[in-house]
Simulated scan of single mutants.
Amino acid sequence: MPNSAFGKMGFKKADVISLCRTMAELDFSDSLHKVSCPVLLICGEKDTANKKTSKELCQYLNNACFHELAKTGHEANIEAPEELAIVLQRFYDNIR
C-alpha cells in the first residue's frame, strides 16, 4: 500500500474513509451563530457539490455573504482566477 496516494502520505485508505464517515456525522449548526468575524462563501455557478450547502451555511452565520461565480464550477481559482481575485479584494476592502 505504500505506493497508493494514501500510503505515500502515511495513511491507510481504510483509516481515511473511517475518519470521513465520523466527520460526516458532525453538526456544528447550533454553534455557528457564535462566529462573529466576516465570512465570504464563494462557489461556482456549476459547483453542484458545494453550492447548496454553502448557501445554507451562509444562513447560519451572522456576518456572512455568499457570492456565486458565473459559468464556473468547483475549481473557481483555476476556472476564473481574475473574477475570484476581484471578489476577494472587494471583500477584504470592506472589512478593513
Rank of each mutant, 00 (worst) to 15 (best):
E83N: 10
N50G: 07
R96N: 08
F66L: 12
Q59F: 14
D30F: 10
F28E: 13
T22Q: 14
K52I: 13
Q59Y: 12
L41F: 04
E83W: 02
A24D: 03
D15T: 01
D93I: 03
E56T: 08
N62V: 03
E25W: 01
L26K: 13
C43R: 00
A85C: 06
N94P: 13
E82S: 12
I86E: 09
R96A: 11
M23D: 02
S36D: 09
T48Y: 12
S29L: 08
A80F: 00
C43F: 06
L61Y: 03
P2I: 15
T72R: 00
A85M: 07
L88K: 04
V16E: 03
T22Y: 09
E25G: 01
N77P: 01
R96S: 06
H67I: 06
G44I: 05
H74G: 06
N63R: 12
R21P: 10
E56S: 07
T48L: 11
N94K: 14
V87K: 00
G7C: 01
N3Q: 05
Y60K: 13
A24F: 02
E45Q: 14
V35T: 13
I95H: 00
H74W: 07
P2S: 15
L19A: 05
N62L: 12
S18P: 02
N50H: 12
K46V: 12
I17Y: 15
G7D: 04
D30W: 06
L19M: 03
M9P: 12
